[in-house]
Design a protein around this nucleic acid. Structure first.
Lengths: 187, 187
DNA sequence: GCAACACTAGACCAATCGGTCTAATCATGT
DNA sequence: ACATGATTAGACCGATTGGTCTAGTGTTGC
């Protein structure tokens, strides 16, 4: 809990944005939750709410990136790494109260008028997918398969998270493994 | 264009909510876009914004439901029906300006304080999945497979839509077919 | 003609929004 | 001790928010 004001603001904002989205959270609420005055916010984030949201998204991106690496670090196969990842995210989802959406999309989808947000979102998504693909390749998948598997994983995760949020059930995320790997041959 | 005021309000609200979410659109904007006064809104929707959002979500749900049925209606296999569905949704996505999210989740995720919205969202999701599963079963899949395929389809669609929105690319949705059906056997 | 009702019209409200600004306080180097 | 810059503190602002209320306008059956 020994973080500086800037980080405290960004983390608090990230948490709240993930629950209600960019437009759903007011600055006053963020300030109240961080127990910091408005002056601090505009000192650390001169452009106000937009700056804050970008930083919150950056934090969320780095955390997700770290989680992905952690999950695949000691995995002996792509499949086991993917499973670990799903479990880790389910844990996180439950820890945050089962109300949060995908950390990035929830923060950065704020409408057509803010194309920069959307682009950033696309970059982060691509970064995660690439990261997963690297792990897949490292774990023995061919380059082509790795790309496909990563995309599949990302899309499944994204959709699964939405479903988990709607149903308030972290097990939805854990079950994604079955969904991804039950590949019976289509006849 | 010969719709009554109530429908006009709901459709306008649906469109705007899908771009910026529940909290991102103000009543005044909806009224301006529908060219109707505030009195009309509170006459047709006595509980104001919440009522309006619920009705907008109901409209979106019915439309999606119809699209699903249309896609599978004349399909000779589950796979071809699924492909048609993806293509139809890609078209819709592009038609709406590539900025909209999943019609339901975008409207009905407005935060923990509104659990009724979230529950409604879960119901609609379940309804779609069930609908897809029925078509799958009708097209020859076993009951178990049908459930699994439908869930897979739903999750993929949900995640793919998010990705399409981030990248502003409807082809992401069209490519989901490959993602779903390339099932090579895992060795 | 007229009563009854459905609907439109928009002025108005308190509350909250994101943002600005000045003053006070804290930390640091000299 | 003192100056300096970083940071905190919060009063304040105009604009906008969702919502209420009253007056007016159709529309329908009698």
């Amino acid at each position: 809990m020994e973080q500086n004001s800037r980080d405290k603001l960004a983390w608090t904002a990230a948490r709240l944005f993930q629950e209600r989205g960019f437009h759903g959270v007011g600055l006053n609420e963020i300030l109240a939750a961080s127990k910091l005055p408005k002056g601090s916010l505009y000192h650390h984030f001169p452009n106000g709410k937009s700056d804050l949201a970008l930083e919150a998204a950056a934090l969320a991106h780095r955390e997700m990136s770290r989680i992905i690496d952690d999950a695949f670090e000691h995995a002996e196969s792509y499949r086991s790494g993917a499973t670990t990842l799903f479990y880790k995210l389910a844990k996180l989802f439950e820890l945050m109260g089962k109300h949060t959406g995908c950390p990035i999309s929830v923060i950065l989808f704020s409408g057509p008028e803010n194309d920069m947000f959307r682009e950033r979102c696309a970059e982060y998504f691509a970064s995660w997918t690439q990261q997963i693909a690297s792990h897949a390749e490292r774990l023995g998948e061919s380059s082509n398969d790795a790309q496909l598997l990563a995309k599949k994983m990302f899309v499944t995760l994204q959709g699964g998270w939405t479903l988990a949020r709607a149903t308030q059930d972290g097990d939805v995320l854990r079950d994604l493994t079955k969904l991804l790997f039950n590949d019976k041959c289509e006849h």
